[in-house]
Design a protein around this nucleic acid. Structure first.
Length: 403
DNA sequence: GCATGCGGGCCTC
DNA sequence: GAGGCCCGCATGC
Protein backbone atom coordinates (compact mmCIF):
# COMPACT_ATOMS: atom_id res chain seq x y z
CA UNK A 1 0.00 0.00 0.00
CA UNK A 2 1.77 3.05 -1.21
CA UNK A 3 -0.84 5.73 -1.24
CA UNK A 4 -2.64 7.55 1.48
CA UNK A 5 -6.33 7.12 1.55
CA UNK A 6 -9.25 6.60 3.89
CA UNK A 7 -12.11 4.28 3.33
CA UNK A 8 -14.52 7.18 3.72
CA UNK A 9 -12.86 9.34 1.09
CA UNK A 10 -15.18 10.44 -1.64
CA UNK A 11 -12.72 9.13 -4.18
CA UNK A 12 -10.15 6.49 -3.37
CA UNK A 13 -6.96 6.49 -5.42
CA UNK A 14 -6.44 4.37 -8.47
CA UNK A 15 -4.27 1.40 -7.58
CA UNK A 16 -1.98 -0.38 -9.97
CA UNK A 17 -1.63 -4.13 -9.85
CA UNK A 18 1.84 -3.80 -8.38
CA UNK A 19 0.43 -1.97 -5.40
CA UNK A 20 -2.06 -4.64 -4.45
CA UNK A 21 -1.58 -6.38 -1.14
CA UNK A 22 -1.68 -10.01 -0.17
CA UNK A 23 -4.85 -10.99 1.62
CA UNK A 24 -4.49 -10.69 5.38
CA UNK A 25 -6.60 -13.19 7.27
CA UNK A 26 -5.74 -11.81 10.69
CA UNK A 27 -5.54 -8.11 10.03
CA UNK A 28 -5.09 -6.36 13.36
CA UNK A 29 -4.49 -2.80 14.37
CA UNK A 30 -5.14 0.27 12.34
CA UNK A 31 -4.26 -0.90 8.88
CA UNK A 32 -5.30 -0.53 5.27
CA UNK A 33 -4.92 -2.87 2.36
CA UNK A 34 -5.99 -3.00 -1.25
CA UNK A 35 -6.68 -6.50 -2.43
CA UNK A 36 -6.87 -7.94 -5.88
CA UNK A 37 -10.46 -7.68 -7.16
CA UNK A 38 -10.21 -11.37 -8.03
CA UNK A 39 -9.23 -12.40 -4.54
CA UNK A 40 -11.87 -14.83 -3.34
CA UNK A 41 -11.24 -14.02 0.32
CA UNK A 42 -11.51 -10.32 -0.34
CA UNK A 43 -14.65 -10.72 -2.41
CA UNK A 44 -16.23 -12.59 0.47
CA UNK A 45 -15.04 -9.97 2.96
CA UNK A 46 -13.80 -12.84 5.06
CA UNK A 47 -11.57 -12.59 8.08
CA UNK A 48 -10.06 -14.86 10.66
CA UNK A 49 -11.76 -12.76 13.28
CA UNK A 50 -15.45 -13.31 13.86
CA UNK A 51 -16.90 -10.24 12.21
CA UNK A 52 -20.54 -9.42 11.88
CA UNK A 53 -22.12 -7.03 9.51
CA UNK A 54 -22.92 -3.62 10.88
CA UNK A 55 -25.07 -1.06 9.21
CA UNK A 56 -23.18 2.14 8.63
CA UNK A 57 -25.86 3.63 6.41
CA UNK A 58 -23.46 3.76 3.51
CA UNK A 59 -24.30 1.39 0.71
CA UNK A 60 -20.85 1.80 -0.82
CA UNK A 61 -18.92 0.73 2.23
CA UNK A 62 -19.48 -2.54 4.02
CA UNK A 63 -18.76 -2.29 7.68
CA UNK A 64 -18.20 -5.17 10.04
CA UNK A 65 -17.57 -5.25 13.77
CA UNK A 66 -15.77 -7.89 15.77
CA UNK A 67 -17.75 -10.27 17.93
CA UNK A 68 -14.81 -11.23 20.14
CA UNK A 69 -14.18 -14.80 21.11
CA UNK A 70 -15.87 -17.57 23.05
CA UNK A 71 -13.89 -18.39 26.17
CA UNK A 72 -14.34 -20.57 29.22
CA UNK A 73 -16.03 -18.71 32.06
CA UNK A 74 -13.43 -19.94 34.55
CA UNK A 75 -10.53 -19.55 32.17
CA UNK A 76 -9.52 -23.19 32.26
CA UNK A 77 -6.35 -24.42 30.62
CA UNK A 78 -6.19 -27.45 28.39
CA UNK A 79 -3.61 -30.18 29.01
CA UNK A 80 -1.31 -28.70 26.40
CA UNK A 81 -1.41 -25.28 28.00
CA UNK A 82 -3.77 -23.74 25.50
CA UNK A 83 -6.90 -21.83 26.34
CA UNK A 84 -10.41 -22.25 25.07
CA UNK A 85 -10.83 -19.76 22.25
CA UNK A 86 -13.78 -20.73 20.14
CA UNK A 87 -15.28 -18.88 17.26
CA UNK A 88 -18.53 -17.11 18.01
CA UNK A 89 -21.34 -17.71 15.59
CA UNK A 90 -22.11 -14.73 13.40
CA UNK A 91 -25.83 -15.35 13.57
CA UNK A 92 -27.23 -13.81 16.74
CA UNK A 93 -29.52 -16.72 17.39
CA UNK A 94 -26.75 -19.26 16.99
CA UNK A 95 -24.46 -17.20 19.17
CA UNK A 96 -27.01 -17.11 21.95
CA UNK A 97 -27.15 -20.87 21.79
CA UNK A 98 -23.40 -21.06 22.13
CA UNK A 99 -23.10 -18.95 25.22
CA UNK A 100 -23.73 -20.76 28.45
CA UNK A 101 -22.90 -24.15 27.06
CA UNK A 102 -20.58 -26.31 29.14
CA UNK A 103 -16.92 -25.76 28.53
CA UNK A 104 -15.71 -28.31 25.96
CA UNK A 105 -12.83 -29.15 28.25
CA UNK A 106 -14.14 -32.28 29.93
CA UNK A 107 -12.12 -31.51 33.04
CA UNK A 108 -13.70 -28.12 33.47
CA UNK A 109 -17.03 -27.15 34.98
CA UNK A 110 -17.03 -23.76 33.37
CA UNK A 111 -19.36 -22.39 30.74
CA UNK A 112 -18.72 -20.79 27.42
CA UNK A 113 -18.88 -17.07 27.58
CA UNK A 114 -18.38 -14.33 25.04
CA UNK A 115 -15.35 -12.16 25.55
CA UNK A 116 -16.41 -9.08 23.63
CA UNK A 117 -14.00 -7.09 21.56
CA UNK A 118 -13.24 -3.67 23.00
CA UNK A 119 -10.24 -2.87 20.94
CA UNK A 120 -11.42 0.33 19.35
CA UNK A 121 -11.85 2.94 22.05
CA UNK A 122 -13.98 0.55 24.04
CA UNK A 123 -15.94 -0.49 20.98
CA UNK A 124 -15.40 -3.53 18.80
CA UNK A 125 -12.73 -3.43 16.18
CA UNK A 126 -14.29 -2.54 12.85
CA UNK A 127 -13.47 -3.61 9.33
CA UNK A 128 -14.49 -1.66 6.27
CA UNK A 129 -14.70 -3.00 2.73
CA UNK A 130 -15.10 -0.96 -0.38
CA UNK A 131 -15.10 -2.24 -3.94
CA UNK A 132 -13.66 -0.23 -6.80
CA UNK A 133 -12.60 -1.17 -10.29
CA UNK A 134 -8.99 -1.01 -9.13
CA UNK A 135 -9.25 -3.29 -6.18
CA UNK A 136 -11.03 -4.13 -2.97
CA UNK A 137 -10.16 -1.58 -0.33
CA UNK A 138 -9.93 -2.77 3.22
CA UNK A 139 -9.46 -0.73 6.35
CA UNK A 140 -9.39 -1.87 9.97
CA UNK A 141 -9.79 0.32 13.02
CA UNK A 142 -8.74 -0.81 16.46
CA UNK A 143 -6.57 -3.48 17.99
CA UNK A 144 -8.20 -6.73 19.08
CA UNK A 145 -7.94 -7.09 22.83
CA UNK A 146 -8.74 -10.79 22.87
CA UNK A 147 -7.24 -14.01 21.51
CA UNK A 148 -7.84 -15.21 18.02
CA UNK A 149 -10.86 -17.45 17.70
CA UNK A 150 -10.58 -20.79 16.01
CA UNK A 151 -10.43 -20.47 12.23
CA UNK A 152 -13.53 -20.81 10.14
CA UNK A 153 -12.45 -24.12 8.69
CA UNK A 154 -11.98 -25.71 12.08
CA UNK A 155 -15.47 -27.14 12.43
CA UNK A 156 -15.41 -28.53 8.97
CA UNK A 157 -12.11 -30.10 9.77
CA UNK A 158 -13.50 -31.79 12.83
CA UNK A 159 -16.39 -33.17 10.88
CA UNK A 160 -14.02 -34.43 8.27
CA UNK A 161 -11.80 -36.08 10.82
CA UNK A 162 -14.70 -37.80 12.50
CA UNK A 163 -13.17 -37.51 15.94
CA UNK A 164 -15.74 -37.65 18.64
CA UNK A 165 -17.82 -40.21 20.33
CA UNK A 166 -16.09 -41.91 23.18
CA UNK A 167 -17.93 -45.04 22.24
CA UNK A 168 -15.70 -45.23 19.22
CA UNK A 169 -12.64 -44.89 21.39
CA UNK A 170 -13.75 -47.76 23.56
CA UNK A 171 -14.50 -49.77 20.49
CA UNK A 172 -11.08 -49.07 19.11
CA UNK A 173 -9.39 -50.00 22.36
CA UNK A 174 -11.30 -53.21 22.61
CA UNK A 175 -10.46 -54.27 19.12
CA UNK A 176 -6.89 -53.15 19.32
CA UNK A 177 -6.39 -55.17 22.45
CA UNK A 178 -7.99 -58.11 20.74
CA UNK A 179 -5.59 -57.81 17.87
CA UNK A 180 -2.72 -57.51 20.31
CA UNK A 181 -3.68 -60.83 21.71
CA UNK A 182 -3.78 -62.29 18.23
CA UNK A 183 -0.32 -61.10 17.47
CA UNK A 184 1.07 -62.60 20.60
CA UNK A 185 -0.63 -65.82 19.81
CA UNK A 186 0.83 -65.91 16.36
CA UNK A 187 4.34 -65.56 17.67
CA UNK A 188 4.13 -69.14 18.70
CA UNK A 189 4.57 -70.57 15.23
CA UNK A 190 4.61 -74.18 16.33
CA UNK A 191 1.05 -73.90 17.54
CA UNK A 192 -0.05 -71.54 14.85
CA UNK A 193 -3.17 -73.26 13.68
CA UNK A 194 -4.49 -74.22 17.06
CA UNK A 195 -3.79 -70.81 18.48
CA UNK A 196 -5.54 -69.17 15.58
CA UNK A 197 -8.74 -71.02 16.26
CA UNK A 198 -8.60 -70.40 19.99
CA UNK A 199 -7.83 -66.79 19.38
CA UNK A 200 -10.87 -66.20 17.24
CA UNK A 201 -13.15 -67.92 19.66
CA UNK A 202 -11.75 -66.24 22.70
CA UNK A 203 -11.82 -62.83 21.11
CA UNK A 204 -15.47 -63.07 20.28
CA UNK A 205 -16.26 -64.06 23.83
CA UNK A 206 -14.11 -61.39 25.39
CA UNK A 207 -15.36 -58.59 23.23
CA UNK A 208 -18.96 -59.56 23.77
CA UNK A 209 -18.49 -59.77 27.51
CA UNK A 210 -16.60 -56.54 27.95
CA UNK A 211 -18.66 -54.15 25.92
CA UNK A 212 -21.27 -52.04 27.63
CA UNK A 213 -22.70 -48.58 26.92
CA UNK A 214 -20.93 -47.19 29.96
CA UNK A 215 -17.63 -48.60 28.95
CA UNK A 216 -14.65 -46.59 30.12
CA UNK A 217 -10.93 -46.71 29.69
CA UNK A 218 -10.42 -47.50 33.35
CA UNK A 219 -12.65 -50.51 33.48
CA UNK A 220 -11.03 -51.78 30.37
CA UNK A 221 -7.65 -51.56 32.06
CA UNK A 222 -9.00 -53.48 35.00
CA UNK A 223 -10.48 -56.01 32.70
CA UNK A 224 -7.26 -56.39 30.79
CA UNK A 225 -5.41 -57.05 34.00
CA UNK A 226 -7.98 -59.57 35.08
CA UNK A 227 -7.67 -61.34 31.80
CA UNK A 228 -3.91 -61.17 32.04
CA UNK A 229 -3.53 -59.31 28.83
CA UNK A 230 0.16 -59.19 28.22
CA UNK A 231 2.30 -57.14 25.96
CA UNK A 232 4.12 -58.62 23.07
CA UNK A 233 7.83 -58.94 23.40
CA UNK A 234 9.51 -58.08 20.12
CA UNK A 235 13.22 -58.51 20.62
CA UNK A 236 13.20 -56.71 23.88
CA UNK A 237 10.92 -53.97 22.63
CA UNK A 238 7.31 -54.30 23.47
CA UNK A 239 5.70 -53.66 20.18
CA UNK A 240 2.27 -52.96 21.54
CA UNK A 241 2.13 -51.37 24.91
CA UNK A 242 -1.38 -51.56 26.21
CA UNK A 243 -0.82 -48.89 28.81
CA UNK A 244 0.03 -46.44 26.10
CA UNK A 245 -3.18 -47.29 24.38
CA UNK A 246 -5.22 -46.78 27.47
CA UNK A 247 -3.60 -43.59 28.68
CA UNK A 248 -4.02 -41.52 25.61
CA UNK A 249 -3.86 -38.30 27.55
CA UNK A 250 -0.16 -38.92 27.81
CA UNK A 251 2.24 -38.59 24.89
CA UNK A 252 3.15 -41.87 23.34
CA UNK A 253 6.76 -42.88 23.81
CA UNK A 254 9.21 -42.57 20.98
CA UNK A 255 10.70 -45.51 19.24
CA UNK A 256 14.30 -45.47 18.06
CA UNK A 257 15.54 -47.68 15.29
CA UNK A 258 19.03 -49.07 14.90
CA UNK A 259 20.33 -45.73 13.69
CA UNK A 260 18.93 -44.08 16.72
CA UNK A 261 16.54 -42.28 14.44
CA UNK A 262 13.28 -41.32 15.99
CA UNK A 263 10.94 -42.85 13.51
CA UNK A 264 7.62 -43.60 15.13
CA UNK A 265 5.86 -44.46 18.29
CA UNK A 266 5.21 -47.84 19.72
CA UNK A 267 1.51 -47.47 19.35
CA UNK A 268 -0.28 -50.29 17.57
CA UNK A 269 0.04 -50.40 13.86
CA UNK A 270 -3.64 -50.74 13.43
CA UNK A 271 -6.46 -48.31 13.16
CA UNK A 272 -10.17 -48.58 13.31
CA UNK A 273 -11.88 -48.43 9.98
CA UNK A 274 -15.20 -46.91 10.81
CA UNK A 275 -16.63 -47.83 7.50
CA UNK A 276 -15.81 -51.47 7.90
CA UNK A 277 -16.13 -51.57 11.68
CA UNK A 278 -12.98 -53.48 12.30
CA UNK A 279 -9.29 -52.94 12.70
CA UNK A 280 -7.26 -52.47 9.60
CA UNK A 281 -3.66 -51.87 8.79
CA UNK A 282 -2.53 -48.29 8.98
CA UNK A 283 -2.67 -47.58 5.30
CA UNK A 284 -5.86 -45.66 5.34
CA UNK A 285 -6.12 -42.20 3.97
CA UNK A 286 -8.61 -39.60 4.95
CA UNK A 287 -11.95 -40.43 3.47
CA UNK A 288 -15.53 -40.60 4.46
CA UNK A 289 -16.17 -41.66 8.00
CA UNK A 290 -19.51 -43.26 8.41
CA UNK A 291 -19.75 -42.41 12.09
CA UNK A 292 -18.63 -38.85 11.98
CA UNK A 293 -19.93 -37.00 14.97
CA UNK A 294 -21.55 -34.07 13.38
CA UNK A 295 -22.54 -32.73 16.76
CA UNK A 296 -19.06 -31.59 17.56
CA UNK A 297 -19.81 -28.20 16.23
CA UNK A 298 -20.69 -25.99 19.11
CA UNK A 299 -23.18 -24.29 16.91
CA UNK A 300 -24.96 -27.43 16.00
CA UNK A 301 -26.73 -27.98 19.28
CA UNK A 302 -24.61 -30.46 21.18
CA UNK A 303 -21.95 -30.14 23.80
CA UNK A 304 -20.12 -33.17 22.51
CA UNK A 305 -16.78 -32.04 21.16
CA UNK A 306 -13.40 -33.23 20.18
CA UNK A 307 -12.17 -32.46 23.65
CA UNK A 308 -14.29 -35.24 25.06
CA UNK A 309 -12.25 -38.04 23.67
CA UNK A 310 -8.95 -36.59 24.82
CA UNK A 311 -7.42 -37.23 21.46
CA UNK A 312 -7.19 -33.65 20.46
CA UNK A 313 -6.79 -30.35 22.14
CA UNK A 314 -7.69 -26.90 21.08
CA UNK A 315 -4.59 -24.93 20.49
CA UNK A 316 -4.31 -21.41 19.24
CA UNK A 317 -0.60 -20.96 19.16
CA UNK A 318 2.64 -22.75 18.97
CA UNK A 319 2.89 -25.23 21.79
CA UNK A 320 5.74 -27.61 22.19
CA UNK A 321 4.13 -30.97 22.12
CA UNK A 322 5.11 -34.46 21.21
CA UNK A 323 4.60 -35.31 17.59
CA UNK A 324 3.56 -38.82 18.39
CA UNK A 325 0.81 -37.69 20.66
CA UNK A 326 -0.94 -36.82 17.40
CA UNK A 327 -2.53 -33.80 18.82
CA UNK A 328 -4.04 -31.73 16.09
CA UNK A 329 -3.63 -28.05 16.25
CA UNK A 330 -6.74 -26.12 15.47
CA UNK A 331 -4.67 -23.24 14.33
CA UNK A 332 -4.60 -23.55 10.58
CA UNK A 333 -0.93 -22.70 10.44
CA UNK A 334 0.01 -23.94 13.86
CA UNK A 335 0.64 -27.62 13.30
CA UNK A 336 4.12 -28.57 14.20
CA UNK A 337 6.34 -30.13 11.66
CA UNK A 338 8.58 -33.11 11.98
CA UNK A 339 12.18 -32.12 11.95
CA UNK A 340 14.67 -33.63 9.56
CA UNK A 341 16.83 -33.96 12.60
CA UNK A 342 14.90 -36.73 14.20
CA UNK A 343 15.91 -35.71 17.68
CA UNK A 344 14.21 -32.37 17.37
CA UNK A 345 10.70 -31.23 16.81
CA UNK A 346 10.59 -27.85 15.28
CA UNK A 347 7.70 -25.51 14.84
CA UNK A 348 7.81 -24.89 11.15
CA UNK A 349 4.39 -24.13 9.86
CA UNK A 350 2.47 -26.47 7.68
CA UNK A 351 1.50 -24.41 4.75
CA UNK A 352 -1.21 -26.88 4.00
CA UNK A 353 -4.78 -27.50 4.89
CA UNK A 354 -5.71 -29.26 8.15
CA UNK A 355 -6.59 -32.30 6.12
CA UNK A 356 -3.11 -32.37 4.69
CA UNK A 357 -1.80 -32.24 8.21
CA UNK A 358 -3.80 -35.28 9.12
CA UNK A 359 -2.63 -37.10 6.05
CA UNK A 360 0.86 -36.25 7.14
CA UNK A 361 0.11 -37.88 10.47
CA UNK A 362 -1.16 -40.97 8.76
CA UNK A 363 1.90 -41.09 6.54
CA UNK A 364 3.99 -41.21 9.67
CA UNK A 365 1.79 -43.88 11.16
CA UNK A 366 2.30 -45.88 8.02
CA UNK A 367 5.97 -46.03 8.83
CA UNK A 368 5.01 -48.06 11.83
CA UNK A 369 3.29 -50.51 9.59
CA UNK A 370 6.35 -50.72 7.39
CA UNK A 371 8.52 -51.47 10.35
CA UNK A 372 5.99 -53.97 11.59
CA UNK A 373 6.03 -55.80 8.31
CA UNK A 374 9.79 -55.68 8.04
CA UNK A 375 10.12 -57.16 11.47
CA UNK A 376 7.76 -59.93 10.58
CA UNK A 377 9.61 -60.71 7.39
CA UNK A 378 12.92 -60.78 9.18
CA UNK A 379 11.53 -63.13 11.74
CA UNK A 380 9.67 -65.29 9.30
CA UNK A 381 6.42 -64.41 10.86
CA UNK A 382 3.94 -64.93 8.11
CA UNK A 383 0.46 -63.72 7.78
CA UNK A 384 0.98 -60.29 9.34
CA UNK A 385 1.52 -58.29 6.27
CA UNK A 386 -1.85 -58.11 4.66
CA UNK A 387 -4.84 -57.62 6.84
CA UNK A 388 -7.43 -58.18 4.20
CA UNK A 389 -9.91 -60.87 5.07
CA UNK A 390 -9.18 -63.10 2.13
CA UNK A 391 -5.45 -63.21 2.76
CA UNK A 392 -5.14 -63.27 6.50
CA UNK A 393 -7.14 -66.10 7.98
CA UNK A 394 -6.41 -65.24 11.58
CA UNK A 395 -8.01 -61.80 11.52
CA UNK A 396 -10.88 -62.23 13.93
CA UNK A 397 -14.34 -61.78 12.65
CA UNK A 398 -15.00 -58.52 14.39
CA UNK A 399 -18.09 -57.93 12.36
CA UNK A 400 -19.75 -60.63 14.37
CA UNK A 401 -19.40 -58.62 17.53
CA UNK A 402 -22.46 -56.61 18.41
CA UNK A 403 -21.27 -53.07 19.02
C1' DG B 1 -29.41 -24.02 10.32
C1' DC B 2 -26.17 -20.69 9.63
C1' DA B 3 -23.35 -17.06 7.21
C1' DT B 4 -23.85 -12.99 4.92
C1' DG B 5 -25.60 -8.64 3.14
C1' DC B 6 -29.02 -5.04 3.30
C1' DG B 7 -31.60 -1.63 5.43
C1' DG B 8 -34.91 0.49 8.93
C1' DG B 9 -34.88 2.27 13.32
C1' DC B 10 -33.24 3.76 17.86
C1' DC B 11 -29.87 5.75 20.99
C1' DT B 12 -25.94 8.66 22.41
C1' DC B 13 -22.78 12.30 21.70
C1' DG C 1 -25.20 14.23 11.54
C1' DA C 2 -22.00 10.58 12.81
C1' DG C 3 -21.27 6.43 14.97
C1' DG C 4 -22.81 2.25 17.20
C1' DC C 5 -25.98 -1.21 17.74
C1' DC C 6 -30.31 -4.08 17.41
C1' DC C 7 -33.43 -6.26 14.65
C1' DG C 8 -35.81 -8.34 10.70
C1' DC C 9 -35.62 -9.92 6.11
C1' DA C 10 -33.72 -12.15 1.95
C1' DT C 11 -30.45 -15.07 -0.16
C1' DG C 12 -27.20 -18.74 -0.72
C1' DC C 13 -24.84 -22.76 0.85
Amino acid sequence: MLRDWDINDNVVPAISEAELDEYQEWADGHCRYVYNPNSEEAKKHSSGWAMRNTNNHNVNILKKSCLGVLVCSVGCTLPNGAKINLRPAICDKARRKQTGKPCPNRNCNGRLDIQPCRGHCGYPVTHFWRHTKYGIFFQAKGVHDHPKPEPKNCRETRRYLGMGKRKNLALMLTRDAALSKKLKTLQNKTNYNNEMINCQQQTSIEMTETYSPTYTQMNYQEYAQQQQFTNIDFSGNEFINAEEIFQLDQPIKQYNNSNNMQVFSKSPSTVLDLDKNYLVKNEMTIGTFSEVDDTMSLTSGSSVSLFDDAYQFANNGYVTNNYNSHELNNNYYGKQNYSEDSSIYDTRNFNTSPIDQVNYDYSMIDQQTSYFNEYNRNNNINGYINYSDDVVPYVPQFEQCAF
